Simulated scan of single mutants.
Amino acid sequence: MELETFYVNRDINNRSRPPTQSHSNDEGKDRKQRGSRCLVLMTVCLGLICVLLLVFITLYITITAERDLLKSTVEEFNHTINSLQDKNTDLMTEKDQLKNNLNSLSLKKLELETRVNDLTAEKSQLQGSVDSLNQKKLELETELRKLSTQENDRFFISCEQKSWSECRQFCRDRGANLIIINTIEKQVSLCE
């Protein structure tokens, strides 16, 4: 616009002079130069617009690709997080089950320890009873040996006449037996 204004101003200044051939050549050159300048300016502007469009398209494609990549990465992260949360839930459930099993086993262990203690006490008691019975057995065996050696001193001689069966029953009722005399020495010792 300044060029046009300049041209108009120049034209106004030169009105007093009549146009000459060289002046019209100059004017044509000026118009050509202005036209080629406009053309260069428009070409440069179009080139800049193309470059800007290319930059914007490249940026758009890059941003879209990065957005899609981020979107897929976020989806993968969400999937991984969900999977980890599921595993965490499963592990917490398993932990609770194991804790319950541990508590149950601890109670069983305490019960078994109590049972072992009771059985140990009972065993000690029974061992004491066995020891006592063994002592009594030894005493009774000793007494039996003493009684065996004194066998001849413990006879009951009855003057009643009874059958062998009746005599045997009579002795058994009193915790005794009939004597068997199978040697002459024994018969002599009894009769003395």
Results as ranks from 00 to 15, higher is better:
residue 71 K to Y: 12
residue 47 G to P: 00
residue 30 D to I: 00
residue 19 P to L: 14
residue 83 S to F: 10
residue 54 L to R: 06
residue 82 N to E: 10
residue 27 E to V: 05
residue 64 T to F: 10
residue 44 V to R: 05
residue 31 R to H: 03
residue 48 L to Q: 04
residue 85 Q to T: 08
residue 93 T to Y: 04
residue 22 S to R: 03
residue 84 L to D: 11
residue 63 I to M: 07
residue 47 G to H: 01
residue 88 N to F: 01
residue 79 H to C: 04
residue 89 T to K: 15
residue 65 A to K: 08
residue 25 N to H: 09
residue 52 L to P: 01
residue 97 Q to M: 07
residue 37 R to S: 13
residue 46 L to I: 12
residue 59 L to A: 10
residue 31 R to C: 01
residue 63 I to V: 12
residue 63 I to C: 05
residue 91 L to P: 01
residue 61 I to T: 07
residue 50 C to W: 04
residue 52 L to D: 05
residue 27 E to I: 02
residue 56 F to L: 12
residue 69 L to P: 00
residue 33 Q to H: 14
residue 97 Q to E: 07
residue 56 F to H: 05
residue 101 N to T: 09
residue 53 L to V: 08
residue 86 D to Y: 04
residue 51 V to G: 01
residue 26 D to K: 00
residue 54 L to H: 08
residue 60 Y to S: 13
residue 95 K to A: 05
residue 85 Q to H: 11
residue 33 Q to R: 12
residue 35 G to M: 11
residue 27 E to N: 02
residue 72 S to V: 03
residue 89 T to R: 15
residue 48 L to C: 12
residue 37 R to E: 13
residue 54 L to D: 04
residue 51 V to F: 12
residue 27 E to S: 01
residue 26 D to F: 01
residue 40 V to N: 14
residue 83 S to L: 09
residue 54 L to W: 11
residue 38 C to L: 15
